[in-house]
C-alpha cells in the first residue's frame, strides 16, 4: 500500500476557530501507482487528510503509513526523506513561492536535498516544460506572473523533487479550462508511464472522471465513500449527501440508465462516449462500450 490510514483522527485545538476540517476515525488505503480523486466540500477534512501524507500534520489518534514510513500520534520520526518522496501542492500557489526568480524557486527543493546545481537546473527546465512553460520563464520573478502561471510554477517546483507520490490540493482552481485538462493529462501520464501515485483533492468531479481510478468522498472528517468511478456513479447519493453538486454527465447517464434499463452497464460519462452510446442504442447495437473509452474527451 502506498498510503494506509488506520483509524486516524486529528483534532485541531478545540478552542481554535480553525477546528473544523478535522478527521474522525479515518481508515483508507491507496494503491501504489494509482490515480485517486478526493472530493468533499470546504471543511470536510480533505485538505487536513492531504497534510497527513508528508507529516505536516500528525494524527492525534491512529496511524498513517505512507510508503515505508509510519506516523503515529506524537511521533517525531525522520520526516526529511518522506517529504522528498511525497510532493504536496497546496491550494494557493502564491503561498508556496518565495524566491526572486522562477529558476531559484524550482531549484530550491532539489538543492536542499543534495542534488548538484547542474542537475537541479536541468530538472527545473524539464519540469517547466512539462507544464507548458518554456525556459524564458526561468529568470522571471514568480510574483510578476499571472495567477495561472504561478500555479504552474508551484506544481513544477514539486515535480523537480521527483517524488513517488504527488498530492495536489485543488490544483486546477485558477487555471484556464484547457490548462486544467492539460494538467490532468500530465498527472495521468506521470501515473501511467512513471508509476507515480497521484492524489488530487478536487471539487470539480466532472473534469477528473476520465482520469481517476478510484474516488474518496469526504464528509465531516470521514470518508463516506471509497470506490471506483462506476460505483460512484451508481451511488450518486453519496455526492449529494456530502453536499456536492452532481456533475451533469452523471445526472444525464443515470437518467438514461433508469429510463433505458442500462443500470448494469459501465457508465458512459464523456460527451463523446454518451453520444456514441446513444447512436448505438438507436441502431439497436446493445454491446456496452468498454470502460475508459472516455479518457480522450478532456479536450
Amino acid at each position: 500500500m502506498s498510503v494506509h490510514f488506520e483509524q486516524v483522527s486529528f483534532a485541531y485545538d478545540d478552542r481554535s476557530l480553525w477546528r473544523h476540517g478535522a478527521l474522525a476515525d479515518v481508515s483508507l488505503s491507496i494503491t501504489p501507482g494509482s490515480f485517486v480523486g478526493i472530493a468533499g466540500i470546504t471543511g470536510s477534512g480533505k485538505s487536513t487528510l492531504l497534510q497527513h501524507l508528508n507529516g505536516i500534520l500528525k494524527p492525534t489518534a491512529g496511524r498513517v503509513k505512507v510508503l515505508d514510513f509510519t506516523i503515529g500520534a506524537g511521533d517525531k520520526g525522520p520526516l526529511r526523506e518522506l517529504r522528498r518522496r511525497v510532493g504536496l501542492v497546496f491550494q494557493f500557489p502564491e503561498q508556496q513561492l518565495f524566491e526572486d526568480t522562477v529558476e531559484k524557486d524550482l531549484c530550491f527543493g532539489p538543492l536542499n536535498f543534495g542534488v548538484p546545481l547542474e542537475e537541479a537546473k536541468d530538472r527545473a527546465s524539464r519540469a517547466l516544460e512539462m507544464l507548458g512553460l518554456d525556459d524564458s520563464f526561468l529568470p522571471r520573478n514568480p510574483f510578476h506572473l499571472s495567477g495561472g502561471q504561478m500555479r504552474k510554477v508551484a506544481i513544477a517546483s514539486i515535480l523537480t523533487m521527483e517524488p513517488d507520490i504527488i498530492a495536489l490540493d485543488e490544483p486546477t482552481a485558477t487555471l484556464d479550462p484547457q490548462s486544467r485538462a492539460e494538467l490532468l493529462q500530465l498527472l495521468s501520464r506521470l501515473q501511467r508511464e512513471e508509476g507515480k501515485t497521484v492524489i488530487v483533492v478536487t471539487h470539480r468531479i466532472e473534469e477528473m472522471l476520465p482520469y481517476a481510478e478510484s474516488w474518496i468522498v469526504m464528509k465531516d472528517g470521514t470518508p463516506i465513500f471509497q470506490g471506483t468511478p462506476a460505483e460512484l456513479v451508481r451511488e450518486e447519493r453519496h455526492l449529494s449527501e456530502a453536499g456536492l453538486a452532481l456533475p451533469e454527465c452523471i445526472r444525464l447517464w443515470n437518467q438514461l440508465a433508469i429510463k433505458l434499463g442500462l443500470e448494469q452497464e459501465e457508465p458512459c460519462l464523456s460527451a463523446e462516449a454518451i453520444a456514441e452510446r446513444v447512436a448505438a442504442l438507436y441502431e439497436h447495437e446493445v454491446h456496452p462500450p468498454t470502460w475508459g473509452g472516455g479518457a480522450g474527451d478532456a479536450g
Binding site: P177, Q178, E248, A271, I274, A275, E276, V278
Partner: peptide, 22 residues
C-alpha cells in the same frame, strides 16, 4: 482554443450528437 476555454458539457454533447447525425 485561442482563449483556452472548453464549452460546457451540454454544448459539447449536442455537438458530439450532431456529428453523429442526431
Amino acid at each position: 482554443s485561442s482563449c483556452r476555454l472548453i464549452a460546457p458539457f451540454r454544448v459539447r454533447l449536442i455537438q458530439e450528437l450532431s456529428s453523429r447525425g442526431i
